[in-house]
Write a protein that binds this DNA or RNA. Sequence first.
DNA 1: AAGGATCTCAACCGCAACAAC
DNA 2: TGTTGTTGCGGTTGAGATCCT
Length: 363
Amino acid sequence: MGKGRAPCCAKVGLNRGSWTPEEDMRLIAYIHKYGHANWRALPKQAGLLRCGKSCRLRWINYLRPDLKRGNFTVEEEETLIKLHNMLGNKWSKIAACLPGRTDNEIKNVWNTHLKKRVAASAGEQKKGGAKGKKKTTCVDVPAPAPSPSPSSSTTTTTTTTTNCSSGESGEQSNTSNELEFELDKIEIPMLDLGFDLDMLLDTVTNTHCPVISSAPTSTCSSASPPCVVDDDTLLDLPEIDIVPELWSIMDGEGACAETAQAPWSNAAPCHGNGTEASAATADDEDGKEWWLEDLEKELGLWGPIDDYQHQQQPDPQGRVDPLSASVDDPVSCYFQAGPAGAATSAVQGPEASAVLTDIPVGP
DNA sequence: AAGGATCTCAACCGCAACAAC
DNA sequence: TGTTGTTGCGGTTGAGATCCT
C-alpha cells in the first residue's frame, strides 16, 4: 500500500496493495501446477501484474496451505515469548518453531500485544497488566526476563537460513552451538505444537529441513525443484474456468509436487517442466488429497458442484455454513470464508472467472 | 447514531545473504 | 575473485476494523 517510499522502477505499472481473489487464484493455481522455483519469473508466467516479491510474500504469508489461521493459542504465545527472549527479533527462526505460523504473523502478534504484555508483566505486575483492547487472549504468562534483544535491530551477522537447502550446517556451527546450548536451558511448552525440543533444536540450528518449516520457500524448492519453467517459455497453463477447470488443475493433471515439507509433499517430484506433469500415483493422491480437499472446501468446491447452492441453505438450526454462505461464486467463498477474509472487498462474480479463464500467459 | 481513537495485520520497503556465472 | 541476479529477513506503514465516548 504505497507507504511513502517510491516504488522501484521495475514495479511501475504493477499492481500494488491488497490482492484480489482473482490474483490469489491465479497464484494458487500456478504454484500448484508449476511450483515456485523462480519467484521473479512467476508473476509474468502466471499473468500476474505483481512483482515476484509480492507474490512470494502473498504465498508465504497467506495462501500456502499449511498455515494455521486464527488466534495464537496460549501455548503458542508462551513459546513465542520464550523464543523471543532467546532469539530476539529473529522472526523467521521463531516461526520455524511455530508450525503454521509465519514470521510476519509472529512479528505482528509480538508487536501488537505480546510485547506490551511482556513489558507490563515485567514492569508492573502489581498493576494488573496491560489493557488490551480487542481480541488479545489474556494469558498469565510467567514474566520472562526483559528481552536482551540480542540482535534486535542489528542484523545478519548470524546465520539467517532456516531453510531446507542448507546442507552447510558446518560453517554455522558456532551459532548453532550457541543456540543449542541456550535452548537447552529453556522450557518451552510444546503441548499441541506437534514437535519436541529436539525438533526445535534441529529446526533452529539448521541441521536439517524442519518438519514444520517457516515456509515452503523457493530455497526449499530449489533443493528439490518442483517444476522448472523456462523463464521465457510460454507456459501451457490450461484455460481455467473457475469452477471445473481450476478444480481439475488442483485435483490432478499436472499438480506439481511442492517441496519436501509441503502438505502435499508425498506427491512425486515433478520431473521436467510443468507441462508434462505426469499422472499422480495412488500414493501421490493420498499425499495431497487432504490438502486438496481442504482447499476445495474453502473454495466451496467440495462435493458435487451442484451442491454449491445447496450448501448455502441454512441447516436445521437455521445456521448457514460460513464456508458457503457468503457469496455464490467459489472464489469469493474462498476468500471470505477461508483465509481471513482479507480480500472480501474485491471483485466478485463474472469478473473473477473472467480473469481466471486467461491464466496462460506469454512473454 | 456518529465521530474520534485505537488496534490489527497485510503488504510494502531496503538491505543482507546467498547462488550462479 | 568479482559481478550480477534472486531470495529471505526484519522494520515500517496505513487502510480497515473495532472500540469508546
